[in-house]
Amino acid sequence: MRPRRFRRIADLLARAGWVIRRVLGAPDYAAYVEHVHRVHPDRTPLTADAFARDALARRYDRPGSRCC
């Protein structure tokens, strides 16, 4: 009983964390890996570290926009 409840809380927290990350615009590595496996099965996805760096570069290295 206890462990299951803990797991449910942990799941809920993980889910909330995922939502907040997405709202902040942080990249979603798991979704990226899933995408690569599904659409380009022949390619190897970037490592988590490389993906994080690449996402950052893409976010700021083109004139996006900034609001008042």
Binding site: R22, V23, L24, A31, H35, R58
Partner: peptide, 22 residues
Amino acid sequence: SDGRDFVPTNRWIVFGHHFAAI
């Protein structure tokens, strides 16, 4: 969809993200 810029996202999350940006 490319898993990077073009990512289908739940509408409430897009809503939150867009609001935080504007």
